[in-house]
């Protein structure tokens, strides 16, 4: 096994470091497609809200803002651990990198648990997709995002397994790609939380 690829490219002289995209180009194209889908969703929410302001404000008051804020903290913290995982692998510490990925996975798991309790409370009140336009957006938008959290966790788990078995020449690139995807999930929630849970 070669760990040469784990080292950052050396910079020589005083030339500025070359600009580079962290991760594979393919994952960034995928991220762009995902961001486009969420942009459509967000704009549709904004337009629907403008037409039914009272309905959206009333519905929003029933949401658990503490759960939304807690989930924001969990995603942000997960992203922070993923940043540390990348830094550790670049520094030649795959064990430390794997450990940080586990912590990020725990944050993702916490997000899922909070979301399950949140949905359970809403469904117990008889709220569903067909209750009204606000709840249709609340459930579908947050569930669509939840699916991305799940996919992100699968990616992190695969990366953790790869690190545990010993990093190869492409591990750093794979980790950078997985990290970019995970941060995208965080990025989307950063818009979603104030929009759906707070703004009125």
């Amino acid at each position: 096994m070669s760990t040469e690829s784990l080292a950052l490219p050396a910079t020589t002289g005083t030339a500025p470091p070359e600009r580079r995209l962290a991760g594979d180009l393919a994952i960034w194209v995928f991220i762009c497609a995902e961001l486009l889908a969420f942009a459509v969703f967000f704009v549709a929410y904004g337009v629907a809200r403008a037409r039914h302001v009272d309905m959206f404000n009333t519905g929003q008051l029933t949401l658990d803002r503490n759960a939304g804020a807690l989930n924001t903290v969990l995603l942000i913290t997960g992203s922070w651990f993923v940043v540390q995982a990348v830094a550790r692998l670049r520094g030649g510490d795959p064990g430390g990198s794997a450990g940080r990925l586990l912590l990020a996975l725990a944050c993702g798991g916490g997000f899922l648990v909070v979301k399950v309790f949140e949905y359970k409370a809403k469904f117990a009140l008889g709220i569903s997709l067909s209750t009204d336009t606000f709840y249709m957006f609340y459930i579908s938008l947050t569930f669509f995002h939840l699916m991305h959290v799940l996919l992100g966790m699968v990616i992190l788990a695969l990366l953790w397994n790869s690190l545990r078995r010993g990093p190869g020449p492409t591990t750093l690139s794979s980790l950078e790609s997985g990290a970019a995807y995970w941060h995208m999930v965080d990025l989307v929630w950063i818009i979603l939380f104030p929009l759906v849970y707070v703004m009125r």
């Binding site: 784990l6 080292a7 950052l8 922070w80 540390q84 830094a87 550790r88 520094g91 030649g92």
Partner: peptide
């Protein structure tokens, strides 16, 4: 020698500030 990458395991300080 090539297997000894520059020891830079620390997360950039900016990342902590952003967090």
């Amino acid at each position: 020698p090539a297997l000894s990458p520059a020891p830079s395991p620390a997360t950039p300080r900016a990342a902590h500030l952003v967090y």
